[in-house]
Design a protein around this nucleic acid. Structure first.
Lengths: 180, 180
DNA sequence: GGGGACATGTAATTGGTTACATGATTAC
DNA sequence: GTAATCATGTAACCAATTACATGTCCCC
C-alpha cells in the first residue's frame, strides 16, 4: 500500500482525496484502499521522510498536498524492481464452488449466473474507463486496464462454460444437494 | 475464513493440522491460511457452537479433532448461498506494471519474464495436483482446480503477449526509464 | 435549507501473518 | 543422534476496514 501511494505521487503532488479518486477509476479492480487507510498511510510516509505535505488554502478550505521526496522516490523505485509473487489468494466465490456439492444444482446454477452478471458489470465499467482513459493515460496504465478487461472476459466465459457443464449434468439426472 | 474451515469439516472430523494440509494441496491458490490463523479460528468456532472438539490419544500424542455441529452446518450452508463479489483486489505485480514508465525497458522485460516463470511454476504444480486428485475429489473440487489451471494459463499467455509488445516497442526505440 | 460531492481525519475492530515455544514421531 | 515432519498453540504485530465525526462548497 505505502509504495502504491508513492507511485501515485510520482507524477506530482496530490491530496489523499485525489489519490482515492484516481485509484477508483484506474487501479481499483486490482488495488484499492479506503480513506481510513490512505490518510494514515500518508502521515506514516511523511514521518518516514518519503513524502512532504503542504497545506494549500483554497477559499476557507484547506487541502493537504503530498509530494514525493528523493528518499521516497528511491524507495518507490526499489519496490518497483522487487519481485512479487503471482499469489492471488482469497477468491471467495471459488471457495464456494469448491464446496458446491452441498448445494442443490438449481441454487448453484443461480449463484453462477449471478456471479456472471456481476463479472459482466465490472467488465462494462472497465470498458467505459478504457474509452475515457485512451489518450491521457500512458501505455502501461492502458496495459493494466487491458489486463482487467481480458481477465474479466476470461472469467465470464469460464463461468459460462461451467454453467453449461453443470446444467448438462443436471439433465442427465446426477446427484444433487446435501443430504447430511 | 471461518466458513471455509466449516466447509472442510463438512466432510468429517479433522485436526487443525489436517485442515492446513488439505488446504495446501487443494485450495491454496485461491484460499490459504496459516496455523496461526487456523487454530485460533477453530477455538473461536467452538466457542460459537459451530464445532465441537474431541481429544484423541494416539500413542502418547494427543490430537484434537473438530467436527461440525448442526448449528455449524447451518451456518456453513447459509454462507454458501450468500452472494460474493467478484472483487479480486491486491495484485501487486499489476500495480508495478501500472507504474512501469519509471523503469527502463530491459528491467521491465526481466520482471515480466520472471513473473511468467513463477506463473509456469504454479501451473505445473497445479497440473500435478490435478493428476493426483483425479478420482478421489468431487466434481466441484476438480472444477476449482481446473479454474486454477485455466487461470494461470491465461496469465502466462497474457504476459507472454505483453512481453512481445513491450519488446516490439523497444526495438522501435521508444522512450525508456525514469529521468526524474 | 437540504442533499451531494468535496475533504480530512480518528477509533474500534477485524483478520490475518510471523515468530516463537514446545514436544512427539519417523526415517536415516 | 539428528533432521524432517507431525502437531498444537500463543504473543506481538500489522494492514486495513468500518463507522464515526466534522466541516465546506455548490447547486437546486
Amino acid at each position: 500500500m505505502e509504495e502504491v501511494i508513492l507511485g501515485f505521487l510520482s507524477s506530482g503532488a496530490m491530496t489523499g482525496y485525489d489519490i482515492k479518486q484516481v485509484m477508483s477509476v484506474s487501479t481499483s479492480f486490482f488495488y484499492d484502499a479506503s480513506y481510513g487507510s490512505i490518510y494514515p498511510t500518508l502521515k506514516k510516509l511523511e514521518k518516514k521522510g518519503f513524502v512532504t505535505s503542504k497545506e494549500v488554502v483554497e477559499g476557507r478550505k484547506v487541502k493537504v498536498f503530498y509530494s514525493l521526496t528523493d528518499k521516497g522516490r528511491k524507495e518507490f523505485l526499489k519496490w518497483l524492481e522487487k519481485p512479487s509473487a503471482p499469489a492471488n489468494t482469497k477468491y471467495e466465490f471459488l471457495a464456494k464452488l469448491f464446496f458446491a456439492r452441498h448445494l442443490p444444482k438449481d441454487r448453484l446454477l443461480a449463484m453462477v449466473s449471478r456471479h456472471i452478471s456481476e463479472i459482466r458489470e465490472v467488465l462494462s465499467k472497465l470498458q467505459m474507463i478504457e474509452k475515457e482513459m485512451k489518450n491521457h493515460a500512458d501505455t502501461y496504465q492502458m496495459y493494466t486496464l487491458k489486463f482487467g478487461i481480458d481477465f474479466f472476459t476470461f472469467l465470464a466465459t469460464w463461468y459460462e462454460n461451467l454453467f453449461e457443464e453443470i446444467n448438462a449434468g443436471t439433465e442427465k439426472g446426477e446427484e444433487t444437494g446435501d443430504g447430511q
